[in-house]
Design a protein around this nucleic acid. Sequence first.
DNA 1: ATTATAAATGAACGTTAGTTCATAGTTTGG
DNA 2: CCAAACTATGAACTAACGTTCATTTATAAT
Lengths: 218, 218
Amino acid sequence: MKPKPQSRRGDAFGPNSRTDARDRILEAAVNLFFEHGFVSTTIRQITTACGLTPGALYNHFKSKEELLLAIALDAQTRVWDCVSSAREAGGADPAAQLSNMVRAFVLFHLTHQRAALTASSEYRWLSGNDRKRNIANRRRLRSAFAEVVQSGVNAGVFESGLSPSQINIVVMSLLNMGIRAARWYEPGAAQSAEAVADLHAWMAVRIVSAGGAPPPTG
Amino acid sequence: MKPKPQSRRGDAFGPNSRTDARDRILEAAVNLFFEHGFVSTTIRQITTACGLTPGALYNHFKSKEELLLAIALDAQTRVWDCVSSAREAGGADPAAQLSNMVRAFVLFHLTHQRAALTASSEYRWLSGNDRKRNIANRRRLRSAFAEVVQSGVNAGVFESGLSPSQINIVVMSLLNMGIRAARWYEPGAAQSAEAVADLHAWMAVRIVSAGGAPPPTG
DNA sequence: ATTATAAATGAACGTTAGTTCATAGTTTGG
DNA sequence: CCAAACTATGAACTAACGTTCATTTATAAT
């Protein structure tokens, strides 16, 4: 009786201005995925949150999973870009590279908590090739970190006792602590996102730097 | 037509020996929660996995949530005991205490991957007081770690520049990397659980030990 | 042996999930 | 100004969910 489709471009400004429906869906979804998890979030919650009815969502995404995929791929792409340019900004010094990368990674997770955490911890609900793609992206990121640490070890600036498999574990630990920071960090807290990111970068460099107690063998 | 209730004590041995139904349910549940998550695991999956029908589960647990609670509380208790005695074994030296605690924490997560990860990352599906209890247990554990780090800072054996809020972040990072290790570690891998735990303990001590670059301010 | 308790069954219940679809209104392009 | 392409609606569908229950069988206690 009262279907009132909205403009695709939206009235960019004014009291009744609305953004594109697709973007509103994505924003509502990322909020709800963060809060309740992908599985527990319903299509009806998402569409209600952005003023639509369930059927309308399927004009923009062909399934709930494709919605998750869109969010996850976008966040992964942005994390990669972010970390890549941080690496380049570190010049040829492995310590500067690693520090910059960790800082950028954590800062991204603190300033885009919802999307970053969705990409990093809801990917298990993707199936088939979507999942493979997400996993491949994650592996690529880990490899970039591992490369930098290895180069530092080779250059003698990082702890020489670290074996390649230990390096992998260290890298996974660093990434996981950054990812989980997106869960516990609260934007209004005493520590700024930059301070938290700096602390993580500091921890990373501390772990791998040469000097101090050698790593355990094995 | 063929209800064949089993012995509560079970025929302890022999070809048809069966353990107590409650334990079989818990074991099936912890496996499925680990693999598919709490929300996605169905009562029917659990009961099928241990040779029961859905209704039978409710003779042992009054709801799906109570099943999760039983698993989570048990694991938390065991982690606490484990970490507490590791702390005592460290004597009065904060570095030995922290190293032992991290080692014990990680080792527990690697040898009880399913239960530990369920306790640590499915607690959000508990409601009301169950959830509060879980959160309180987690906080107690964090406090124990923070106490040790703070005592090391006070004693001058750990980095003096670390503020209390930085200590909290460091502790959360340490715990999170141990927790996540339960997800990526594969028991048959090249690295033994002990070696991985040792490496984590090494990282922890490296981060907090005095000397090296001072932590960022803020 | 008899009784009381515990445990398993299989069918059912009420909900709610993701998704589809005929319909109707809106926007765009020629 | 008309037609084609979009987009939102609201109702419906199927499937699966957690849970309940009357009933039946096994075990434990007296």
